[in-house]
């Protein structure tokens, strides 16, 4: 490794972090905001060189890092794309992130990339495929990953395993951890009419290694509400309440403020991170008591 790029495999602290966006690179380097960590989309750092790497290397020297993939397509029946796994490994080797995560969904079919996270039918067959794919990724990277629960706008006739049980079984069989996206739980609970609290109760809390929080977009289909997970708005109160409940089960865990569209000034995201930090401190006191 390049000796001007000294970093340690420091774990991510149980604090709030923010998704790193190119438009905030300079603010981060100049202002050095007080945050627990930054998270990036692994796919944005798959080029050989250039400015994105210069910025991330500089920021990585000062902050723990989490790498969040959107292209491995853990749910693909066709298996894991070896080239994309190699690109992911190169990025992970380069930055030595404290956490690596991916989604319980598919985005690749016969090599075509949909650039979206599509939900899966929750069946025994899917469970076997997802478990194999996670194992392949973990073997390839030489480390465990976190598996994120999806948001979804459709469900399948074939699905017969409840999503939290599916997550738990995939984690149990592959040895991976869970990235609990509380906004996704809220969005899918509204879209599919399930109880978000019961969902959180069914997720194995001891496997949750990170939490994601984000805002969403509300749409209406002839009187029926459908929530769209666009990461384009502030986190709503109902999601903060669910977060508080989730923390009562998991204890303090690294928590990411995710924003991928309508990106505001970094200060706005810092406010949401400060809010998450207050919840984390509260639950840490409860744990200590």
């Amino acid at each position: 490794m390049n000796d001007k790029f000294k970093i340690s495999l420091d774990p991510i602290p149980a604090r709030a972090g923010v998704g790193l966006k190119a438009m905030h690179y300079r603010d981060v380097l100049d202002g050095h905001p007080d945050l627990g960590f930054f998270e990036v989309h692994t796919e944005n750092y798959m080029g050989a060189g250039g400015p994105p790497h210069r910025y991330l290397e500089a920021i990585r020297r000062d902050y723990p890092l989490s790498m969040h993939g959107i292209g491995l397509s853990l749910g693909s029946a066709g298996g894991i794309d070896a080239e994309h796994l190699a690109r992911t490994k190169a990025a992970v080797d380069r930055y030595q992130p404290g956490l690596v995560s991916e989604h319980l969904s598919f985005s690749v079919v016969d090599a075509t990339f949909l650039n979206d996270l599509v939900p899966l039918p929750y069946t025994e067959e899917t469970l076997a495929i997802v478990t194999d794919n996670i194992s392949r990724v973990q073997d390839g990277l030489g480390r465990t990953i976190l598996l994120e629960n999806p948001s979804s706008y459709l469900s399948y006739h074939a699905s017969h395993i409840p999503e939290p049980e599916f997550l738990a079984a995939a984690a149990e069989r592959s040895g991976c951890g869970i990235l609990l996206d509380v906004n996704n739980v809220y969005v899918s609970a509204v879209n599919h009419g399930f109880d978000a609290i019961a969902y959180l109760d069914a997720v194995p809390a001891n496997r949750v290694g990170e939490i994601h929080l984000a805002g969403h977009h509300v749409t209406d289909y002839e009187g029926q509400t459908l929530l769209i997970d666009d990461h384009g708005a502030p986190i709503i109160d109902a999601v903060w309440r669910l977060y508080s409940y989730a923390l009562s089960l998991t204890g303090p865990v690294p928590t990411l403020i995710e924003r991928d569209s309508n990106i505001p000034p970094l200060a706005d995201l810092m406010d949401e991170a400060a809010m998450a930090d207050r919840f984390l401190e509260e639950v840490a006191h409860v744990d200590a008591a």
């Binding site: 749910g75 693909s76 029946a77 598919f106 949909l114 069946t123 899917t126």
Partner: peptide, 15 residues
């Protein structure tokens, strides 16, 4: 063919 592969190909076609 795998049921999952079949459903993913159907989805790809729909997109």
């Amino acid at each position: 063919m795998s049921m999952l592969l079949e459903s993913q190909r159907a989805f790809l076609g729909a997109i």
